[in-house]
C-alpha cells in the first residue's frame, strides 16, 4: 500500500490532511495512525463477514457433509434445490409470512404514529409501552405467545370461548400455525414501525398542513395528499427493512412451531439450519443461503429503483 500523497489530499479536505512535512518518518506514522483507527473493525468484518460470504459460495459448489472431503459438483446443488418441492414450500411459507406481516405492522404502526403525533395526554408513557416488545427477545415473545395461544388452556381461546366462539388450534394446527407466528411478530414489531413513522411525521413542516387547512382540505384529504406523500421516505425505509428481516425470519418460527406442524410453517432459514445440522448437507445449505441472499438483494434493488416513482424527498 502506498502512503497518501500529502499534497493531493490537503487540496480537497484541508483540515483532515496529514502533516505537510514530507519526511518519510511522519508519513509512515500517519499511515500507522489510520490503520490503528481502522483495523480493529476492518479485520473482524473481513474475517467474519466477507471471508465466510465467499466461503459460502465456494461450499455451495461442492457436495459436503461437514466432515469428509469436499467434492466438486458445480451448480448441481442449485439445480437440485430449484427443482425440489421442499424448496418451493419453504419459499412459499416465507412469502406467506412476509405478505401477512408487512401490511399488518405497517397499517397498525401508521395509525399509532398518527394518533401519538397529535396532542394526547401521556404520550411518552404510551409510546414507551408500545415500544416495550421491541426490546424483548424473540424466544421470550415466542414462549409467551405459545402460552397465550395455547389451544386448550390459553387465555385467548378462553376469551373467545366467553364470546361463544370456538377458538382454533393456533400453533398446533397446520392452517393456523403461520397466522399465529404473524400475529406474534406484528405485536413485537409494531412499536419499531411506529417510532420510525413518528420521526417521519415530526419532520413534516407544519406550515404545509396549515396551508392546506386554510384552502379547505378535510382531514382525510390532508392525510392522503399531504401527509402520506411527505411520509414516503420513512415508509420506504420501513418497507425495505421489514422485507429484509421478513425474508430472514427464523427465531420466532423455531421457538413457536419448530417449523411444524407437518412442515406447515417451515421457512427458508429453518431449512438452511436443518440442511446443515440435521441432514449434514453443507453444500445444499450454502446454496440455499445464497439463493436467499440473492432474493433479498433483488427485492432491495427493485425497491431502490422503484422508489423514484413514489418516494417524495422534501
Amino acid at each position: 500500500m502506498t502512503a497518501p500523497s500529502a499534497v493531493g489530499i490537503s487540496r480537497t479536505t484541508r483540515p483532515l490532511a496529514p502533516p505537510r512535512r514530507t519526511r518519510r518518518g511522519s508519513r509512515l506514522r500517519y499511515t500507522l495512525t489510520v490503520l490503528a483507527f481502522l483495523l480493529p473493525s476492518a479485520l473482524p468484518l473481513l474475517a467474519f463477514t466477507i471471508y465466510p460470504m465467499i466461503g459460502a459460495f465456494w461450499t455451495s459448489l461442492h457436495s459436503w457433509n461437514l466432515i469428509g472431503v469436499m467434492e466438486w459438483v458445480g451448480l448441481e446443488n442449485y439445480t437440485t434445490l430449484l427443482t425440489d418441492d421442499a424448496t418451493r414450500r419453504v419459499f412459499a411459507n416465507t412469502l406467506y409470512y412476509v405478505v401477512g406481516y408487512l401490511p399488518l405492522v405497517y397499517i397498525g404502526g401508521l395509525a399509532l404514529a398518527l394518533a401519538l403525533n397529535s396532542l394526547i395526554p401521556a404520550r411518552n408513557l404510551l409510546r414507551g409501552i408500545y415500544f416495550l416488545p421491541v426490546v424483548t427477545s424473540w424466544i421470550v415473545v415466542a414462549l409467551v405467545w405459545r402460552w397465550l395461544l395455547n389451544p386448550s388452556v390459553g387465555v385467548v381461546n378462553a376469551m373467545l370461548g366467553g364470546l361463544g366462539i370456538d377458538g382454533p388450534g393456533w400453533w398446533t394446527d397446520p392452517y393456523w400455525a403461520m397466522p399465529s407466528i404473524i400475529l406474534a411478530s406484528a405485536w413485537k414489531d409494531l412499536g419499531f414501525v411506529m417510532i420510525i413513522l413518528l420521526a417521519g411525521l415530526q419532520a413534516i413542516p407544519t406550515d404545509v398542513q396549515e396551508a392546506a387547512m386554510i384552502d379547505g382540505a378535510g382531514r382525510f384529504r390532508r392525510l392522503l395528499n399531504i401527509t402520506l406523500p411527505l411520509l414516503s421516505p420513512s415508509t420506504f425505509f420501513v418497507v425495505v427493512i421489514s422485507l429484509i428481516n421478513g425474508f430472514q425470519v427464523f427465531d420466532q418460527v423455531y421457538a413457536m412451531t419448530g417449523g411444524g406442524p407437518a412442515g406447515s410453517s417451515t421457512v427458508v432459514v429453518q431449512q438452511i439450519y436443518d440442511l446443515t445440522f440435521r441432514y449434514s448437507s453443507a453444500g445444499e445449505a450454502s446454496a440455499l443461503s445464497w439463493l436467499l441472499f440473492l432474493l433479498v438483494l433483488a427485492v432491495t434493488v427493485i425497491q431502490l429503483i422503484g422508489q423514484r416513482r413514489w418516494v417524495t424527498y422534501a
Partner: peptide
C-alpha cells in the same frame, strides 16, 4: 455493504471457520 449480509447466510462457513 456488509450490513446487507445477514448472519443466516454465513452460518455454515462461520461454523466451519
Amino acid at each position: 455493504a456488509t450490513m446487507m449480509i445477514p448472519i443466516q447466510v454465513l452460518i455454515v462457513p462461520l461454523f466451519v471457520q
